[in-house]
Simulated assay, not measured.
Amino acid sequence: MAKIASKSFWYKYQERYQAIKSVLCVGLDSDFSQLPEGVKNSENPIWEFNKTIIEATLDYACAYKPNLAFYLADGIRGLDALYKTVEFIPDNLPVILDCKIGDIGNTMNAYLSAFFAELKVDAITLNPLMGSDVMQPVQDRNAFAFVLCLTSNPSAADFLQEGMAEKIANWLQDYPKENFGAVIGATQRANIKTMRNLLTGRILLIPGIGAQGGDLKTVLQEAKDSSETPNILVNSSRSIIFASKGKDFATAAREEARKLTQEMKNALNRGSN
């Protein structure tokens, strides 16, 4: 049975957080070259790997985020894996497609139809460079997008740390928080508090924890909206899904997700005292 998006991303996030008090987003950056040898000979290796990872981490995940590039890289088989993955994730867990699109007119509408109507994800990542023409189709569809605002990669300094991030954050104030969140990299320690103050009430998607070296305590202390409603999703990809490349990869992924979730809970609780 095809997955039907019965509730908005905004609603699903709030409901899931209140149910399990986790802000963990498991990034399904399922690079074929990095998969455990035990699954590489499967009929559809990425799908078999994802299915096992999802089953292992389900108790701790507030959301899942497949990265489109790794599925495209495996051709038709990879796209099949993506569709099966999204369908397999329980409907009460929001799914973010990390695609970083940003186009206008019929092209943008075609992207949105592909991702929301056909693939049935709950949110996407969006590049706002082309302006309001990128944003309006998302709002018209009553969909949800995380707008690239201050990313975690080192060369974000080329543009986004030169006033552009603040400009994007201020510009976002004209758009509903129920339709637009923001991507703020965990590696941007000096700017996280400023960005949260400009983005009050919005859900922040925060990559850069784990393999990229972001400081978890700083993120949780400075990026949360409040102790009751943090409005953040801390994404961890490689450090969870590739915690082991042996036969124990599922057990290792579950343990890594458990440890990270508990660490985040402890930090949030300390911050509320």
Rank of each mutant, 00 (worst) to 15 (best):
Q221T: 11
I76G: 10
K100N: 15
I192L: 01
I184K: 00
S22W: 12
I89P: 04
I20K: 06
K193G: 05
S244H: 09
L172Q: 02
A2I: 15
L72C: 10
I20S: 01
M108S: 02
L93W: 12
L260Y: 13
M135Q: 03
I192Y: 00
R270P: 08
A69D: 03
I124Q: 01
G27W: 04
K217S: 07
Y111D: 01
T125M: 04
V134I: 14
K7Y: 13
E43H: 11
P36K: 03
A73L: 08
L150N: 09
K21G: 06
Q136V: 11
L82F: 10
N50R: 02
T85R: 03
G75K: 09
I240C: 01
S272R: 06
L82G: 04
L79T: 02
I101C: 09
Q212P: 02
V86N: 01
R77V: 11
G246K: 04
Y60Q: 04
L260Q: 05
I54V: 04
L150A: 15
L119E: 06
L112K: 00
Y13D: 11
Q34R: 14
Q136P: 03
F249P: 04
G208Y: 05
A253H: 06
A243V: 02
I46L: 13
L260H: 04
A69P: 03
E15W: 15
Q136W: 14
Q262Y: 07
L216I: 14
N106A: 14
S239E: 07
V219Q: 00
C62R: 08
F115T: 00
V95Y: 11
L82E: 01
I89W: 11
E178G: 01
V234Y: 08
I89G: 10
D215E: 13
T57S: 07
G102M: 13
P207S: 06
G105T: 08
L72K: 09
F180S: 10
S237P: 05
A243L: 09
L216T: 15
N41W: 08
P45R: 15
R254F: 13
Q34L: 15
A252M: 12
M130N: 03
K265Y: 13
N179T: 01
K177V: 15
F146I: 12
N197M: 13
Q262V: 09
A257E: 03
A157V: 15
T57K: 06
F180T: 11
A223C: 03
T261H: 08
C149R: 11
E15M: 07
L97M: 06
P154N: 14
L216G: 12
M264Y: 13
I203S: 02
L97V: 05
I241D: 00
G78C: 08
E255A: 14
D59F: 12
G214T: 03
D122W: 05
G185K: 08
R16F: 14
I89R: 11
Q173C: 12
M195R: 09
Q139G: 03
E118G: 13
G214S: 00
S227C: 02
N44H: 12
S152I: 12
F116I: 07
E255L: 15
S152D: 04
D158A: 11
V121T: 00
I76C: 08
K51V: 05
S6M: 13
A114Q: 01
V95S: 06
L28V: 09
F70M: 07
Y175I: 05
R77Y: 10
A2F: 08
V26G: 04
D98M: 09
S272M: 09
G131H: 11
I240D: 00
R258W: 13
F49H: 06
A110S: 10
A156P: 02
C99A: 15
L28N: 05
S226M: 11
A182Q: 07
